[in-house]
Computed example of a mutant assay.
Amino acid sequence: MQNWGYIVVIFLVAYLIASIILYYLQEYFIFKPEKLDKDFQFHYNNQTVKEYNLETRDGAIINGLHFKVNNPKGVVLYLKGNSKSIKGWGKFAVDFTRHGYDVIMLDYRGFGKSTGRRSFKAIKRDLQFVYSKIKEKVNEKYIILYGRSMGSGFAAKLASINNPKMLILDAPYYSLNKVAAKYIPFMPISLIMRYPIPTYKWLKYVNCPIHIIHGTQDKLIPFKSSIKLSKIRPKLTRLYTVIGGGHKNLNNFESYHKMLGEIINSKMKRLNLSDTSIRVLHSSKKLNA
Rank of each mutant, 00 (worst) to 15 (best):
N163Q: 13
L273I: 11
N252W: 11
Y256C: 08
S175P: 09
S83M: 05
Y183A: 14
Q128T: 09
L287R: 13
P72I: 01
A60V: 01
N207H: 10
I161E: 12
I264Y: 08
D126G: 05
S149T: 05
T216C: 10
N3I: 15
R279Q: 13
I144T: 12
V206S: 06
L158H: 03
N177M: 03
L127H: 07
K219S: 15
M166F: 00
M105L: 12
K178A: 13
M193C: 03
A14D: 08
V75S: 02
K68T: 08
D126P: 03
L79I: 14
C208S: 13
T56A: 11
E34C: 01
A93R: 06
P209T: 11
N249W: 01
L169N: 04
W4N: 14
K267Y: 13
I123T: 10
T237I: 11
K201T: 08
V69G: 07
P172R: 04
K204Y: 09
I232H: 02
K182F: 04
S85K: 03
S85M: 03
M187K: 07
P209I: 08
C208K: 02
N70Y: 11
H214N: 12
I189E: 03
R270S: 12
L220V: 14
L12H: 11
R57K: 15
M268D: 10
R109L: 11
A14P: 02
S149I: 02
I212F: 05
Q41A: 15
L191N: 10
A289L: 14
D126V: 01
K258D: 10
I21E: 02
V280P: 06
T237P: 03
L260S: 02
Y108P: 04
D275Y: 07
Q217P: 03
S226P: 02
A93I: 07
P185C: 08
Q128N: 13
H247T: 08
H66Y: 12
L176H: 06
Y23I: 12
S19A: 14
T216V: 15
L281T: 13
I197K: 03
N46F: 10
K124P: 01
P72K: 06
Y146S: 09
A181Y: 00
L12P: 10
I134Y: 00
G100V: 01
T56H: 08
Y131M: 07
P209N: 06
F31N: 08
